[in-house]
Design a binder for these strands. Structure first.
Length: 575
DNA sequence: GCCGTTTTCGGCCCGACTGTTTTCAGTCG
């Protein structure tokens, strides 16, 4: 899919225009187009070849100019405007945008006045106190830039959802103990449950904001107080930025909406407000003519005032949710309680820590109807993969556990069979056909080219015994890039062969991701939300990240196979 | 650069905090 490449080109154009001080609305137009393109579930190349500029212009945020550039990129693989702009600026300049508290204006100034064009040069200039000669920059700015560079180097990149969420929850616990805190909630990307989190946003209702600020900035583990005001403060806590905002009870709904974002979603909502003569800010919804407050206590007020159905936080990314809410098409998103079983867990029979029985009793405690033990096949030697003999032995144990827990849980016998680099599966069909569920996955040779890797997975899907493709892109967040694969093609083959795609709930996988989930839904491909748990605690703890990602992918319970009861599920499998 | 039940031109979301400023620019979300 060429979409991500095109989005990157438009983002870079926006960056360069920003540093050049170009029209900020033009910058915004490029950014909005980039965000839209990133999340499109259809290949731009296909759209461009089918309908050209006219069809591209139907996509919101894409007009004549950007549509023409997309066609140009699809046809020539290059964009003239982008090429010309990149020549105008030294390559290191844009990297500086990633430094906290350093923005386009600062970069332009230090470049124009001192010829600084990289982070290293900026650091040297600050240390030699050369920045304070520039108008608008002083000693404090030098100090903040050095701090920013240090922060950028130390905590580059974002934290996993699974790291940020528990940390935020413990901050909430701590602040709840204070009398001044009447109400407290998580907002920001964490409330939207993004897979990675840049900073933690917290919203408090209080009549005594100063006390709250004091408590917040003196929390245990605070490394730096970046800002401290009457209603807003910012700290660095154990390597994460944490922002806190205090409002009064009458503004809570407007504030939680504003503070949840995303930024792009908020812009769309406020634009709708402007058209209706309304001003929307974190304090409420106001009539522009009279200044009268018409809403703000509840989050639903904000949507109601602009004529929209309620939009759950996970959808607020300006990915079409505003249009859907206008037409009353907001999906009934899947919830944790809809999950009736886990179709991918490991046991001691390969690299898991717990026995079949222990996994079964945990599944019972979770209220599940079934759990599929999907231990590795022989090729994954490091994980103690099972050969045919071992699978037979394990079956005896599964049968006995099923007898023991009859009526409480059904343990499905399964394997996570390796899809080898020569396209073959790691176990013969005769063995696979004996199993209740077959999960197939790639575990090696991640560097095969896109066409080969796509064919490799396609071949597995075409096997009449393979029910589910596990972690279909192989990514490990922060450690391993996804392998190259034509996801749209895979979705088509999955649909044709009746193969289920896994949403692996492990917080550093979340694979399929939210956008892929939505693509699957558009193609009519069912999803299995599985944990890939290697012990019982993981089976319990990580499923919520999978469900969150599914919600971000607009999935409803009916799109997910493991919301079905045992009998219905068995009907959805190939066997 | 996009977009139109106020417009095909002239708008384009909104406010807090900081630092360098005597009234505001820059950054952030």
């Amino acid at each position: 899919m060429i979409n991500l490449d095109i989005a990157r080109i438009f983002d870079e154009i926006a960056d360069i225009l920003e540093v050049k001080g170009d029209n900020p609305f033009r910058v915004r137009a490029y950014r909005r187009a980039a965000r839209t393109i990133e999340t499109l579930t259809q290949d731009l190349k296909v759209i461009a070849e089918r309908g050209g500029v006219d069809e591209l212009k139907k996509i919101p945020g894409i007009g004549e100019g950007i549509a023409r550039k997309i066609v140009e990129i699809v046809q020539t693989g290059d964009c003239k405007k982008h090429r010309e702009l990149t020549r105008e600026l030294p390559p290191g300049l844009l990297e500086m945008l990633a430094i906290p508290r350093v923005g386009p204006k600062t970069i332009a100034k230090v470049h124009d006045e001192l010829g600084v064009s990289s982070i290293a040069e900026l650091e040297a200039a600050a240390k030699q106190h050369k920045l304070r000669g520039i108008s608008g920059l002083g000693a404090k700015v030098e100090e903040n830039i050095l701090k920013g560079i240090e922060q950028y180097r130390r905590y580059r990149g974002r934290k996993l959802l699974s790291e940020a969420l528990p940390r935020a929850e413990s901050i909430l616990e701590e602040l709840k103990k204070r009398d001044a805190v009447e109400r407290i909630t998580i907002a920001g990307s964490l409330r939207r449950m993004r897979e990675t989190i840049g900073d933690i946003d917290i919203l408090v209702v209080s009549k005594r904001p100063k006390e709250v600020m004091d408590a917040f900035t003196s929390l245990e583990g605070v490394e730096d107080v970046v800002a401290k005001g009457d209603t807003k403060s910012s700290i660095v806590l154990k390597g994460m930025d944490v922002d806190l905002r205090v409002v009064d009870a009458g503004s809570f709904g407007a504030a939680v909406h504003y503070f949840t974002g995303s930024k792009h979603h908020n812009i769309r909502i406020r634009e709708l407000g402007v058209k209706r003569g309304l001003k929307i800010n974190e304090y409420g919804v106001f009539r522009v003519d009279t200044g009268e407050k018409v809403g703000g206590e509840n989050e639903r007020d904000v949507f109601r005032c602009v004529g929209l159905a309620y939009i759950p936080p996970e959808l607020r990314e300006d990915r079409g949710e505003v249009e859907a809410a206008q037409e009353n098409r907001i999906p009934e998103l899947i919830e944790l309680k809809d999950i009736k079983g886990d179709l991918h867990v490991h046991t001691k029979w390969s690299d898991g820590k717990n026995s079949v029985e222990e996994m079964a009793s945990t599944a019972i405690a979770l209220g599940y109807e079934y759990v599929a033990v999907a231990d590795h096949s022989p090729a994954v030697g490091i994980a103690g993969g099972m050969d045919e003999a071992k699978i037979k032995k394990r079956q005896v144990e599964i049968d006995s556990v099923n007898e023991q827990f009859e009526g409480e849980i059904r343990v499905l016998s399964s394997v996570e069979v390796d899809i080898k680099s020569d396209f073959s599966l790691d176990l013969p069909d005769d063995t696979l056909k004996e199993l209740d569920v077959v999960v197939a996955a790639v575990h090696s040779k991640f560097t095969q080219d896109k066409a080969t890797m796509t064919k490799r997975i396609e071949t597995a899907m075409e096997n009449e015994h393979v029910d589910i493709i596990a972690h279909p892109t192989g990514r490990i967040l922060g450690k391993r890039e996804p392998y190259e694969v034509d996801m749209e093609r895979l979705m088509e083959v999955a649909k044709d062969t009746g193969t289920i795609m896994e949403l692996n709930s492990f917080p550093d996988r979340l694979d399929l991701n939210d956008i892929h989930c939505r693509m699957a839904k558009d193609h009519g491909v069912p999803i299995a939300i599985s944990t890939d748990a290697h012990d019982a605690m993981q089976m319990r703890d990580v499923i919520r990240y999978g469900v969150a990602t599914a919600r971000r992918g607009w999935l409803e319970a009916r799109d997910v196979v493991n919301t079905r009861g045992m009998e219905e599920l068995l009907n959805l499998l190939k066997g």
